[in-house]
């Protein structure tokens, strides 16, 4: 869906991105992760031509973005930024309908789409008439995501979208985004400096340092085989095992028969381990939402990585 080929960019003579190559597959959730100044935002902003590269080629759905009109290109890419950037003089509904309005959708279609998105982002329909300043930070960012999705873009570009939110709101929105990715199968490129966020959400993690790729792989592979000490430091040395467990659904370590206290079947193995420690047991019975026993997990099974 998006390909970078030997892309470079310098600001005031300082190289921010160097010889950068990237392939984001259709439907992938790609997290660009790195410290401040690693070039991750610059890379994102080159995708929708808010920044023009000095060298190299960027292709979007097979076309060189340099050949496309930047304004029309951006309408095909949803864009979410950290502070949401909602238009303060427009209602929530009009904010969400911004790109459909640019594309000349008729009233009925636009209204239907706004209602659909407010449901998708779990926004109270009554908020449609509210102004952005009346929203909480979490609500504002939900509107920001809804606005980016409004015209059903091919990709969603997100620049630290949850960076300014408190941990509880952030967790809720992360879960929401994971669900949206599952349901819509949209290609998402996501900039963050939070490794846990990247590991939890992404299917492809690209670790950046000084505008270069340190490693570009799946979350599990990144944890199991960090390419070098730099990446190792980024993913965390001491709790890497726990992070690996958090990528594993409890159902993947299921053994037959009930044994031990009950836990739901939609948690990850890290939560299961936590529950074992909390209850001082080494076996947990896994039940589905109806209370039906699906099997059990054992401590030894969790250890087997």
């Amino acid at each position: 869906m998006i390909d970078f080929d030997g892309v470079a960019k310098a600001f005031d003579g300082r190289a921010v991105v160097q010889d950068f190559n990237l392939h984001v597959a259709d439907g992938a959730f790609c997290a660009l992760i790195g410290a401040s100044g690693s070039g991750k935002s610059t890379i994102l902003r080159m995708m929708n031509r808010l920044i023009e590269p000095d060298a190299g080629r960027i292709r979007f759905a097979g076309q060189d973005v340099a050949d496309l009109d930047p304004t029309l290109l951006r309408r095909r890419m949803g864009y979410v930024i950290q502070s949401a950037g909602l238009f303060p003089h427009w209602s929530v509904a009009r904010n969400i309908a911004a790109v459909p309005a640019l594309l000349g959708w008729d009233r009925a279609r636009t209204q239907a789409r706004v209602a659909e998105l407010m449901t998708l982002l779990r926004l109270d329909p009554a908020l449609g008439r509210a102004r952005p300043h009346e929203l909480s930070g979490g609500q504002a960012q939900r509107v920001g995501v809804a606005r980016a999705l409004a015209a059903d873009p091919d990709v969603l570009l997100m620049d630290e979208p949850f960076g300014a939110l408190d941990p509880i709101t952030r967790a809720a929105l992360q879960a929401e985004l994971a669900r949206i990715h599952r349901e819509t199968r949209k290609t998402i490129v996501f900039v963050t400096h939070d490794m846990d966020e990247a590991l939890q959400l992404a299917t492809q993690v690209v670790v950046l340092e000084d505008g270069r790729v340190l490693q570009d792989t799946s979350p599990a592979d990144l944890l199991a085989h960090p390419a070098n000490a730099g990446v190792g430091a980024f993913v965390g040395r001491l709790d890497r095992g726990l992070k690996l467990l958090s990528l594993l659904a409890i159902t993947e370590r299921l053994e037959p028969g009930a044994d031990g206290p009950e836990v739901p079947d939609d948690i990850d193995c890290r939560s299961a381990l936590s529950r074992m420690i909390e209850l001082s047991v080494d076996r947990l019975t896994v039940v589905d939402v109806t209370g039906q026993v699906r099997g059990h997990v054992a401590l030894a099974g969790l250890m087997r990585s």
């Binding site: 929708n48 808010l50 304004t71 029309l72 290109l73 951006r74 309408r75 864009y79 930024i81 950290q82 502070s83 949401a84 950037g85 909602l86 238009f87 303060p88 911004a98 790109v99 640019l102 920001g144 606005r147 980016a148 570009l157």
Partner: peptide, 18 residues
Amino acid sequence: VSAPVREAARGMGFGPLR
């Protein structure tokens, strides 16, 4: 006019006149 608002507008595909 706040920079994020302007950036959001540009990033969504508002041309300079819009």
